[in-house]
Design a protein around this nucleic acid. Sequence first.
DNA 1: CTGAAAGCGCTTACAG
DNA 2: CTGAAAGCGCTTACAG
Lengths: 329, 329
Amino acid sequence: MCATLKDVAKAANVSTSTVSRVIANNPKISEETKNRVTDIIKRMNYHPNAIARSLANKATRILGIILPNEADDLFKNPFFIQAMTGISIYAQSRGYYIMYAFGKSEKEELSHIKRYISSRLTDGIILLTARHSDKCIQYLKEKEYPFAVIGRPEEPEGVLWVDNDNFQAMYTVVNFLIQKGHTAIGFIGGPQDMTMSRDRLKGYKEALSTNGISIDEKLIVQENNFTEQCGYAAMNEILDYKIPSAVVAIDDLFTFGAMKAVKDRGMDKIPMVGFNNIPLAAYQPIPISSVDINAEELGYNAARLLIEKLENVKMVTNHYIVKTQLIKR
Amino acid sequence: MCATLKDVAKAANVSTSTVSRVIANNPKISEETKNRVTDIIKRMNYHPNAIARSLANKATRILGIILPNEADDLFKNPFFIQAMTGISIYAQSRGYYIMYAFGKSEKEELSHIKRYISSRLTDGIILLTARHSDKCIQYLKEKEYPFAVIGRPEEPEGVLWVDNDNFQAMYTVVNFLIQKGHTAIGFIGGPQDMTMSRDRLKGYKEALSTNGISIDEKLIVQENNFTEQCGYAAMNEILDYKIPSAVVAIDDLFTFGAMKAVKDRGMDKIPMVGFNNIPLAAYQPIPISSVDINAEELGYNAARLLIEKLENVKMVTNHYIVKTQLIKR
DNA sequence: CTGAAAGCGCTTACAG
DNA sequence: CTGAAAGCGCTTACAG
């Protein structure tokens, strides 16, 4: 029912090769035929069949993105949808399509990756998280399949990645608190299998050390899930030990829970700084400061690096660092 | 580099037709050859090329979903990602892939739809919202392209849709508040071009009428964006008029803002009920009750209806109503 | 039960 | 500058 190349060729009285070249903007075509064919394409409302094109080109212009779905962080943290927006904006500007798949576990993510690769539907894959000894990254590297990661991989050689400078971001936050006179600063961290978690912890420790403050391991609590519940529990653990003058957390959801723990004990409010700048941070009992990681930009640049690789743009570096901003409230 | 049908056929000493039939589980193939070919497929780690298959089948098993991106509701309301999860779960169970595109406006959404259709990449489209005189729905209907909508369309004949019973859901909430003795109930509504907004308003009015309470139009405020700011403004408007004993809002973000407006005036807390059961509703200064719309189930069933249509499953109805639950806090 | 052949709708090296 | 032809990797009606 739809017009095909053949239909256009017939109508224009040329061969399909010529029409194909007109569409591809091949310079060898004379102005005259180009114009004539272009007109007919318009008039017939012809649009190339992307599938046929993909088969001939052995490239689909489809990118696959893998969404981790552990816990329901996915639903609470706008990071994912923001990153997806950024990916989509760049991809679209370059004429690429995006496919997504949720994985409830690393294993499931891996099986999606295998499906994408073996079906040959995608040209490249974007991972939205980097884990400790990440099976997905290992697999993609091994297969030499084009991919990019949001988050710094453990072994970054030869892999495209974008990330914030998590060490620096946390260092800055803690340093800022120290300048304001805080010395007993609680830390609520995340799973140690994420490089992000570990880098932020390092930043925390380094800021303390640099300022001559000894590290009190009992002020440091690590949780495995990015939930308010975990933040609540972590804060209680800290409070059972001593009352910190400030708290930093690697996720706003932790600070929300921590805030509640403080409130439930009927204590005075404790200043807190989180990460991700979740919109509702501003609407907490007392507004919570937060580090904005610019998730959209992370996504945008992940797509950019991957597409540049696919199109053989010569690259200077294999990674890109996105700035963070401390939003003080 | 990858094995093709031909390679397998050669290795198995059969024709490509036979291999193809084995993969399609065609019953005419003898057990013996089937087993032999299956073994070789395994051994060679052969996976069919989805693109070639799509071209031959004139079907891609790809669904396109269109995400509205007006305001940044998208980032705050887990609805979208939850719906995407539901869509993905069903789609995957049936061997379908999902593509997404963000539209910053109805116009942009429409252009994505056109792109999906004209490229013939997708087999069907899922819309995540239904508007007043919705251009996207009109276009898809006109083109007779397979699609499903989350949200009841204005003219539902012949279109597949899933939704909550928004009228009933709001009716129940308001009725519940009336039973508890409230009579002056503020209402914060949304854009009137969304059927969801209008249905919920109707439910509110009907519940009052049924209980013999006259409708006070000054207690009703409609906002155009689903943001805390709008909720804040709406609540102030209501408060300038009179102090309601309770407030219902068609989105939790409104209640968050409304809560703040009340607090900023140094007033006593007012019980509020929102919609969407945004995770953080439980973490507000006082926990906010909310109607859970089961977004994941909405997505799941939208995908189900669409795929059933694509596969010619005989359908009883062209829509599906997903239950809501009032989460009392 | 199996195979040869045509076809899905493009692209492109080759020839002219 | 343009066309005929082969090819991308599948499916399937037709014949046997």
